[in-house]
Nucleic acid binder design. Structure first.
Lengths: 157, 157
DNA sequence: TCCAAATATTTTAGTTCTAAAGTAATTGGG
DNA sequence: CCCAATTACTTTAGAACTAAAATATTTGGA
């Protein structure tokens, strides 16, 4: 589990600076998306994220898989999915093989809802990033992938 | 208020890709910091952010200024600061000139607490980013500043 | 086989957060 | 000077979130 020492490791000051520079635009975009989802669809960003995760997975997801992908606790997913089940967006069924497990699947209504929202989501982001030159966007997309791979956090990836 | 058209504007697909690449590492680092603040100091990340904002401002901050800097609603700041007042970290005093305004200031205990936490915060971030080559970190720091300036959100900056 | 440990999820208690409505103080055009 | 609009903040109702404890099921070694 030992990781190789990094001779060019950045110091605390530079690390804090990078973190603040990374955090602020991300928080602004997140807030903008949250507000727009609420205003246009009356839906939380978390719900959209859950729908997106389920849409990407072709055979549904276990509660625990959802919690991993959304980067939130199990308890949070329990409540989020309960409300989404109540609203007919997803189903939650116990596994036959292992009755501790619950698989969550999109309903037809959930998938249709997601399709509409995903279009708006992409349009909003294109608008939010419209002033960023394509070259800068491509470079950032590359560099943030590198960043993600190099992160030393409890739950990597 | 019209902004110049961007001839090289990225499309929805690229915008979503950039967003996801930006969001994931940021969320992972945020979660890591949140967990560590909770574990080591029994304190929320929001509290640390509030302390940091107040420490940076030399003459205290109005409730509204805090809500701008922390990117949260006024109502949220009301509750957060109430709890911090109760714990002796900050004071909250009405302005003489305009009794609608409330200025929040660090107490000596609050400033001392912040100083200790800020050191840990910097150390943790240096550790989290330790595998990122210094060159990549510097480049990301630059590029995210550019990103912030180019963002088209309701509340810019 | 049995039962202790591990696994998957839910529950609990409480903080953080939002949107929207409410309160109180200030400001400025008529 | 006045009062309608604005500003600063709080309150409310409820969703989103966490850490920790609880529940239920499965697994694996003695």
């Amino acid at each position: 589990m030992a990781r190789p020492a990094q001779t060019t490791a950045i110091d605390g000051r530079a690390a804090v600076k990078l973190w603040l520079r990374l955090y602020r635009p991300t928080a602004l975009v997140e807030r903008e998306l949250r507000t727009r989802f609420q205003r246009e669809f009356g839906v939380s960003l978390s719900r959209f994220d859950a729908l997106a995760a389920l849409d990407r997975a072709e055979a549904g997801l276990l509660m625990g898989e959802l919690s991993e992908r959304l980067l939130v606790t199990n308890g949070n997913v329990t409540g989020l999915i309960s409300r989404m089940v109540a609203d007919g967006l997803v189903t939650r069924t116990a596994s036959e093989q292992d009755r501790r497990r619950f698989r969550v699947d999109l309903t037809d209504a959930g998938r249709a809802t997601f399709t509409i929202m995903a279009k708006a989501h992409a349009d909003w982001l294109a608008d939010i990033f419209a002033d960023l030159p394509g070259e800068a966007a491509a470079s950032l997309t590359d560099q943030t992938e590198h960043l993600l791979r190099s992160l030393r956090t409890e739950q990597d990836g």
